[in-house]
């Protein structure tokens, strides 16, 4: 259900370092192939997903 996806989105956001993500976005704008972009985004998504526990900053 959509609520499950919303929960997943919030989890990623709460573990997200926006500065790191923005730097990645700039880097990706300069990548030349789909394979390179997929690899960088997949690595980043897996890194976000592997962060454990609830952050205590909010």
């Amino acid at each position: 259900m959509s609520a499950a996806c919303l929960a997943g989105a919030k989890r990623v956001i709460r573990h997200l370092d926006l500065a790191e993500a923005t730097a990645l976005a700039e880097e990706i704008q300069n990548l030349k192939t789909a394979a390179e972009i997929k690899r960088r985004l997949t690595d980043f998504a897996e890194k976000c997903a592997s962060k454990k526990g609830e952050p205590d900053y909010v």
Binding site: A3, A4, L6, A7, G8, A9, K10, R11, I13, R14, H15, L16, D17, L18, A19, A49, E54, P55, Y57, V58
Partner: peptide, 19 residues
């Protein structure tokens, strides 16, 4: 991942940097 994510449904979508 789906099991863990359920706990986040009622949380605010705020990044580590506070955005």
């Amino acid at each position: 991942q789906l099991r863990e994510e359920r706990a986040y449904l009622d949380k605010e979508p705020i990044t580590q940097n506070g955005t």
